[in-house]
């Protein structure tokens, strides 16, 4: 698990502290050059879109590690502890299934994209690479889901929420 958490953390560092700040810089430069010097950067928007996509897909595993989900929890106190435990396991099972499907399809997509030399219009970023990034995010999530699913320990904490993952880093404001 520890290694997986490092992987998740590493991808998240790329997402939050590399991709997002890069978007900030690229667009700030683009707008400044456009407004003051009438010479916008042609590929700025495209790069920002690619970075945004990377930022989102690379943060996937960490969003599962930190339980960052929108959910309705009005049944939390109605369901018994065993039922809560099953719901949590079901979550990881579904996440695992979806991620495995995503990885499989990314492979198929990439093959097609390489065949037709699909790439972003200005910067020629191969679309297959971007599918690779999605597969990476899905793979990290799938691995975490698998470990969590097979965990012999109870996953539900006393308050009915899911217990934190062992050894996860928690540096974010509540």
């Amino acid at each position: 698990m520890k290694a997986l958490l490092y992987l998740s953390r590493g991808l998240f560092v790329l997402s939050a502290w590399v991709c997002l700040p890069s978007i900030l810089v690229v667009l700030a430069c683009d707008v400044t050059l456009r407004y003051f010097f009438d010479s916008p950067i042609r590929w700025a928007q495209e790069l920002a879109e690619v970075l945004l996509f990377l930022s989102v897909v690379l943060a996937l595993p960490e969003s599962f590690v930190r339980h960052a989900h929108v959910k309705a929890d009005f049944l939390k106190n109605v369901l018994g502890r065993a039922a809560r435990e099953s719901v949590i396991r079901l979550k990881w099972a579904l996440a695992l299934a979806i991620c495995v499907l995503i990885i499989r399809q990314c492979w198929a997509d990439a093959e097609y994209m390489l065949l037709i030399q699909d790439s972003t219009p200005e910067l020629y970023v191969p679309m297959a690479w971007l599918r690779g990034a999605l597969a990476l995010g899905a793979a990290g999530t799938a691995a975490i889901a698998l470990v969590r699913l097979l965990s012999p320990r109870r996953l539900v904490a006393a308050d009915g929420e899911e217990a934190p993952l062992d050894g996860r880093f928690d540096g974010v404001e509540p």
């Binding site: 998240f12 997402s15 939050a16 502290w17 997002l20 700040p21 930022s55 989102v56 943060a59 996937l60 960490e62 969003s63 930190r66 960052a68 989900h69 929108v70 540096g171 974010v172 404001e173």
Partner: peptide, 18 residues
């Protein structure tokens, strides 16, 4: 600043999945 970026990334992925 670091935490703010991290939180923004998490909120985005959370909404993006939806």
């Amino acid at each position: 600043i670091r935490n703010s970026f991290a939180d923004a990334a998490l909120v985005t992925v959370m909404l993006f999945v939806i």
